[in-house]
Simulated assay, not measured.
Amino acid sequence: MKNDKNARILLVDDEPHILQFLEMGLVEEGYRIATAPDGMTAVNLAGEFQPHVVVLDVMIPGMDGFETCRLLKKKGADMAVIMLTARDEVEDRVKGLKLGADDYLVKPFSFDELLARIEARLRNQFPSLFGEVALGPFRLDDRRREIVFMDRVLELSPTEYDLLKYLVINHGIVLSKSKILDAVWGYDFGGEENIVEVYVRSLREKLNDKEHRLIRTLRGAGYRVDLP
């Protein structure tokens, strides 16, 4: 889906062919793009370019991606940061989240998945770019914290709202329980992962999703929302 909202994306990677590939694809999607080969250039450029989303490689020369993320978030708290890492290690994920990262992708990744993550971050953190977001049978209004399903306003608790919004905005993406906990409950949540199952069960009841066609369970992987 083409983007016509002038959303700005800053790409940070020291590999020119990756920057070129991502820039070409995102420009084709209608985004305004700036690129940086290292962290210091990215931080300086962010002040002028004011990106909505930063796609940031962890392994960049000089100042690494973690320190770059910290400085970018200090410069603009609303700026969404998606970190790219070659290692899917829990320590890297937690470290990035503690420094303000909003999402992460493990290399190698598909362009379509990165595009989906960018769109999700924009809808989640910059709803004013879109107003009310319509996704399949859902309409999300973040200003009113209201979700309409099949023309029916859902009666949701604050946590149910946050969880359903996260699942719907990331439709088509498999989300593990740990990733959901980080996004909805926070990386410092000290409870059990099973709380996700409890809330998913409640959402399925409110959506009349008895056959789990909307919120699918992928055994050993997590959950995925499939929109009709």
Results as ranks from 00 to 15, higher is better:
Leu72Asp: 14
Arg32Thr: 12
Glu193His: 15
His212Ser: 12
Ser202Asn: 14
Val196Arg: 05
Asp13Lys: 11
Gly65Trp: 03
Lys206Cys: 09
Glu211Ala: 09
Gly100Pro: 10
Gly100Val: 05
Arg32Asp: 05
Ala46Pro: 00
Asp141Ile: 00
Leu167Cys: 08
Gly25Phe: 06
Ser128Arg: 11
Val148Asp: 02
Ser128Phe: 07
Ala183Gln: 11
Tyr199Glu: 13
Glu67Cys: 02
Asp88Ala: 15
Gln20Met: 12
Leu71His: 04
Val12Phe: 11
Arg93Ala: 06
Leu105Ser: 07
Tyr199Ile: 05
Ala221Phe: 13
Gly76Leu: 07
Ala7Tyr: 06
Glu48Cys: 04
Lys107Tyr: 12
Thr35Ser: 13
Asp209Arg: 12
Lys75His: 11
Asp209Cys: 12
Arg224Pro: 00
Val168Lys: 00
Asn170Ser: 09
Ala42Leu: 08
Glu15Cys: 03
Leu156Arg: 00
Asp141Gln: 04
Leu115Phe: 14
Gln125Trp: 08
Ala101Leu: 13
Tyr104Gln: 02
Phe111Ser: 03
Ala42Lys: 01
Leu129Ala: 06
Gln50Tyr: 03
Gly76Ser: 14
Leu11Val: 03
Leu45Gln: 06
Leu115Val: 11
His171Asp: 04
Glu28Asn: 15
Val58Met: 00
His52Leu: 02
Arg144Gln: 03
Cys69His: 10
Ser176Trp: 04
Glu192Met: 13
Glu193Gln: 14
Asp141Phe: 00
Val58Ser: 01
Leu129Ile: 07
Gly100Tyr: 10
Leu84Asn: 03
Lys2Ile: 05
Tyr223Glu: 10
Phe111Lys: 06
Pro127Cys: 01
Val58Ala: 00
Thr159Lys: 13
Leu227His: 02
Leu99Gly: 03
Ala86Val: 02
Ala46Cys: 02
Phe111Glu: 05
Tyr166Cys: 12
Asp102Thr: 06
Ile147Trp: 07
Ala134Gln: 09
Phe149Thr: 01
Met79His: 00
Ile173Phe: 05
Leu164Asn: 03
Leu71Phe: 04
Val153Tyr: 11
Asn124Pro: 00
Asn208Phe: 11
Glu28Leu: 15
Gly186Ser: 11
Ala134Val: 07
Leu10Lys: 02
Asp92His: 12
Asp226Arg: 11
Met40Asn: 03
Glu146Pro: 00
Lys210Thr: 15
Asn3Gln: 12
Asp209Gly: 12
Glu160Gly: 15
Glu192Ile: 12
Leu11Phe: 06
Asp141Thr: 04
His52Thr: 01
Lys98Leu: 07
Gln50Ala: 01
Arg8Pro: 04
Leu114Phe: 04
Arg204Glu: 09
Ala101His: 09
Leu26Thr: 04
Gly96Trp: 08
Leu164Asp: 03
Val196Ala: 08
Asp182Lys: 02
Lys75Cys: 03
Lys210Tyr: 13
Glu89Asp: 14
Pro108Glu: 14
Glu113Pro: 01
Gly96Met: 09
Gly222Met: 05
Ile60Asn: 04
Asn124Phe: 09
Thr159Ala: 10
Leu11Ala: 01
Val225Met: 10
Val27Tyr: 01
Lys179Ser: 14
Val168Asp: 01
Arg93Asp: 02
Gly47Met: 13
Leu175Glu: 11
Thr68Trp: 05
Arg121Ile: 05
Gln125Arg: 15
Glu28Gln: 15
Asp162Gln: 06
